[in-house]
Amino acid sequence: DMDDLGAEIGTCISEDDTSVDDEPRRTPKETGFHRSARECLRKIREDLLQHRWQEAAEYMISYFQTLEDTTVTKQLLASEIIWRLGTEILHHHPNSNPEDFNSFLEQMKNIGVKSYLKVSLEHAFHLLLTGHFDEAKQQLSIAESWRYGRQSASQADKMKLIHAYRGFLDYFSWISKKNATSGDDDADVADHKEMHNYFRQASVNLQEILKQPGVWDPFVIGYVNMLEFYNDQDGALSILKEYAYDNSFPPNPNAHVFLYDFLKRHDAPEKKLIRVLEVLQALVPSHELMLELCSLLLKSEN
């Protein structure tokens, strides 16, 4: 996405109001408004490259005027540019604070409704990075209930990610509760019930994202961890096998490592371990687990 945006920014900056040939231009001539916007964007880019965050912030305030463009495509592009570059400026500006960041992202959600889910996801990531777990979870909860017009395929995909990360945060809540009650003789029924509620909530969302072809390593590890805790070994094994062997998923060496580790933990026969490692060998011949494969093969010959 950033590469595409970079190309768009380059196009915006390099646009010229003169034709490269003798044919008259069929598009309306560039206005002073568009020239000013293009120059402003060029200044922002220069300041970003030189790490002049204050100057970039000042030009960005002026660039907000591009949202008044009556051309829908230009308006959408402007909101995307402001969101991406504004986030970068706030991230590095020495005087920015969490309130500035939160206020800016909330504004971006309301300006570019088509980017609402993307901005919400980034907002949640930012809150997590700054240690605001509950606030991040709340952002995802709000995004889960967001609706605007007819949902596009792109919005549907992003909503799946919102649900997935909400489930992943429920998994972290489950982990936290598990650690708090582990070895605690005073842990009561309410504590265990709360922990199981987190498990149930996380499971619903994690199950859904694992139906979508993709690389979902952290989600798989979290879900399997919970299933193993509740002694659902068959369920965990089913998830891992599907993740490793479903041809609709991209080739992923980690999927086979996860399956191997699980089988090894549960004392699976060596033949099964060898089969899993042989598939991994085809994907990554130099993987560190090839030493274990050699050892298993030597043992099987004796």
Results as ranks from 00 to 15, higher is better:
12 C>W: 13
15 E>L: 14
16 D>R: 13
16 D>E: 07
17 D>F: 08
18 T>F: 15
18 T>H: 12
18 T>D: 09
21 D>N: 14
27 T>C: 04
28 P>V: 09
30 E>G: 09
31 T>W: 03
32 G>R: 11
34 H>Y: 04
37 A>V: 02
37 A>Q: 07
38 R>T: 03
39 E>Q: 12
41 L>W: 04
41 L>Y: 03
42 R>Q: 14
42 R>P: 00
44 I>C: 01
44 I>S: 00
46 E>C: 07
47 D>C: 12
48 L>H: 03
48 L>R: 08
48 L>N: 01
50 Q>E: 08
51 H>W: 02
51 H>D: 05
51 H>K: 15
52 R>E: 03
53 W>C: 03
53 W>H: 03
53 W>K: 03
54 Q>Y: 12
54 Q>R: 06
54 Q>W: 06
57 A>H: 02
58 E>G: 00
58 E>T: 01
62 S>Q: 13
63 Y>M: 02
64 F>E: 07
68 E>N: 13
69 D>N: 14
70 T>L: 15
70 T>D: 13
73 T>Q: 15
73 T>L: 12
76 L>A: 12
80 E>H: 15
82 I>F: 06
84 R>D: 03
85 L>I: 15
89 I>W: 00
90 L>P: 00
90 L>H: 02
90 L>R: 02
92 H>T: 06
92 H>Q: 13
92 H>L: 11
93 H>L: 10
95 N>I: 01
95 N>K: 09
96 S>T: 10
96 S>G: 03
97 N>C: 11
98 P>D: 11
99 E>H: 06
99 E>I: 09
101 F>Q: 12
